[in-house]
Computed example of a mutant assay.
Amino acid sequence: MADNHTRSVAYHTTRTDHGTTVVTLHGELDLLAIPVLSTVLDSLTAGAEPDLVLDLGPVSFIDCSGLSLLCRVRSRVRSRIGRLRLVAPDGSFLRLLRCTGLVGAFELYPGLPEALAGKDLAGPASAAVA
């Protein structure tokens, strides 16, 4: 039997904007992508008071392992008295958070400029999704 497994394509870009580390995640956040992304995010959250923005806009799919990674990053950032912001421009990620009971667990923004400005829009964004 031929082994026709396709490998998910996930990659990231990292930059710093006025002391905030911005990581743009691309592709699928699934079981195959998590080991590499976990190493990167562990490194970025290893120091004291990490200030991290994860842009999920280019992410096409998130499974339970991807959601688990985001929760792990959140815990690491909080334990180091830091800040984690997620950019989720469409409602699909918010629906995922609602289904899993995590809707209030993350600081959510509709775009990168809002996340970098620090305007917390999680309340209105949460209310807008039915």
Rank of each mutant, 00 (worst) to 15 (best):
M1K: 03
M1F: 07
A2N: 10
D3H: 06
D3K: 01
H5K: 10
T6H: 14
T6V: 12
T6W: 09
T6L: 12
S8K: 07
V9A: 15
V9R: 11
A10T: 08
H12N: 09
T13V: 13
T13W: 10
T14H: 05
R15C: 09
R15L: 07
T16N: 02
T16D: 07
T20P: 05
T21H: 03
V22Q: 05
V23Y: 01
V23S: 02
L25H: 02
L25K: 01
H26W: 00
E28G: 00
L31D: 04
L31P: 03
A33I: 01
A33D: 04
I34Q: 02
I34W: 04
L37R: 00
L37Y: 02
S38F: 06
T39A: 13
T39W: 04
L41K: 01
L41P: 08
L44D: 07
T45N: 07
T45Q: 09
A46F: 04
G47H: 13
A48M: 03
V53K: 00
V53R: 00
D55H: 02
D55S: 02
D55C: 05
G57T: 12
P58I: 09
V59Y: 03
S60L: 05
I62D: 06
I62P: 12
C64H: 05
S65G: 05
S68N: 14
L69S: 02
L70I: 01
R72C: 14
V73I: 12
V73C: 09
R74W: 10
R76G: 03
V77D: 01
S79Q: 15
R80N: 13
R80Q: 14
I81Y: 12
R83F: 07
L84F: 08
V87L: 09
A88N: 09
A88T: 13
A88Y: 00
P89E: 06
P89R: 03
P89V: 07
D90L: 04
G91H: 10
S92K: 04
F93P: 04
L97H: 04
T100L: 01
G101T: 05
G101M: 01
V103P: 08
A105S: 14
E107H: 14
E107T: 15
L108D: 09
Y109K: 03
G111D: 15
L112S: 11
P113M: 04
A115K: 00
L116E: 10
A117V: 14
K119H: 12
D120I: 12
G123R: 03
G123T: 15
P124G: 01
P124K: 02
A125I: 15
A125M: 15
A130G: 10
A130M: 10
